[in-house]
Amino acid sequence: MLALVLALALGVTLGLLTNVSVPAAWLTYLGVAVLAAIDACLGGIKASLEQTFDDKVFVSGFLTNTLMAAFIVFVGDRIGVRELYLAAVVAFGLRVFENLGTVRRLLFSRWGWE
């Protein structure tokens, strides 16, 4: 668990150090992709707590979700339904909270707080 927190901190530090800034045109795409990535990570943590974690599933899910999220926004832009990105946001947002709740409960049971 500590390694995961450290990895997140390292990513933030890297981002701050390399001074990357996303071009305005990519903002929506990357925003939804980030949401998908967060969801994938929470899902992975949940699976590892449930002892059902499979790294192949995690990696493929991570990549597919982020790419698909960005792609949905792209398609929405192209076909004139700019609000299509809302679908991705809602879907991933719901899943993030769902996963978060499960992880919380699993952690509680693991630490014996129930």
């Binding site: 990513g11 981002g15 800034s21 980030v34 995690f58 991570f62």
Partner: peptide, 30 residues
Amino acid sequence: RLTASLAVGLLLVGFLLVAQMRGTATFSQS
């Protein structure tokens, strides 16, 4: 393996988050 793949994923998430925040900050000033 589990920890490693999750760690890589979280690292990516952190990096992208910062990049996105910075991009949004620049954009909101435009």
